[in-house]
Amino acid sequence: MTVHYLSENNSILNHFVAQLRDVGVQGDRMRFRQNLHRIGEVMAYEISKNLHYAPAAVTTPLGVKETAFIADEVVVCSILRAGLALHEGLLSFFDGAENGFVSAYRHHPNNDDYFEIVAEYMAVPNLTGKTLILADPMLATGFSAEAVYKKLAEKFTPAQVHLAVVIAAPEGVAYLQEHLPDSVHLWVASLDSHLNEKKYIVPGLGDAGDLAYGVKL
């Protein structure tokens, strides 16, 4: 797996991520969603550098310009629910993309810290031969990303897979490097310190889904 750390060089991306983390800003859900949306746009631009392009001629009012258009068939797929705002940001750049949605959540069968990842609902187009962009704001253990990837791979064979995450823990990155194919690209907006005993990212930002859409039962 190829890992791209986008925060290694300072850019407006780091500004957006800083606002996501700030407890003084997080109370504004609309602003939290908007920052996820804007991060999705930045990540879409970076991912676009790894796509395939076809030459094209564009007629202008004064002549013809030889240029290029994206040749890949792109599918943006988010892991519900936290991935929705990030999904919209990606989609604002890949505006002709198809869309998919997969649910994944931590299930605590014993009502303690032990959990299993359950990937159930899936609504996706045919992904075979296409460029799949999976969106999930938080990469903690890597179990959710692996579960969703394997669920999709049971039915489809994408030509390319790009996993876009905002905050990642080193443990999750290492896990995916071990369990996902070398052909997968992982895009990380910001790499954090570690996971705590409950497998939450430190310093992280909290529960992205709750901050974006309200606390769930």
Rank of each mutant, 00 (worst) to 15 (best):
A97L: 09
G83V: 01
Y53F: 15
I79M: 07
L86R: 00
H37K: 13
N35L: 02
D28W: 06
T59L: 08
F94Q: 00
H87M: 14
S92A: 11
R33E: 04
A54G: 12
R81F: 10
E88K: 09
G40Y: 02
V42Q: 07
H52A: 14
Q34Y: 08
F69D: 02
G27S: 11
L80I: 12
H37W: 09
K49Y: 15
V58Q: 01
G89F: 00
L84E: 14
M30P: 12
H37D: 08
V74Q: 02
F94E: 00
I39W: 00
E66L: 11
R38C: 00
F32I: 04
V74Y: 05
F94V: 01
P55I: 10
E66S: 11
V76Q: 06
V75H: 06
S92N: 10
V74I: 15
A82E: 06
L62K: 01
A97F: 08
V76R: 04
V75F: 10
V75N: 06
G96W: 00
T59Q: 12
F32D: 01
Q26I: 11
F93V: 08
N35R: 02
I47C: 11
L90S: 00
Y53M: 12
C77P: 07
P55Q: 08
E41G: 07
A68T: 12
A56N: 09
H52F: 14
L80H: 07
F93Y: 13
F32S: 01
K49I: 15
R31W: 01
A82I: 04
G24W: 05
V58E: 01
A57Q: 13
G24Y: 05
V25W: 03
N50H: 15
L84V: 14
S92V: 09
S92F: 04
G83D: 09
S48Y: 14
D28M: 11
R33V: 02
F93R: 07
A56P: 05
P55G: 09
E73W: 11
M30R: 15
V76L: 13
G40P: 02
L91W: 05
Q34I: 02
A68V: 12
V42N: 03
G83W: 01
H52D: 15
I39D: 03
A54D: 07
S48I: 13
T67S: 05
P55E: 11
K65A: 09
G24D: 11
L80C: 13
L51E: 09
S78R: 12
R31P: 03
R38A: 03
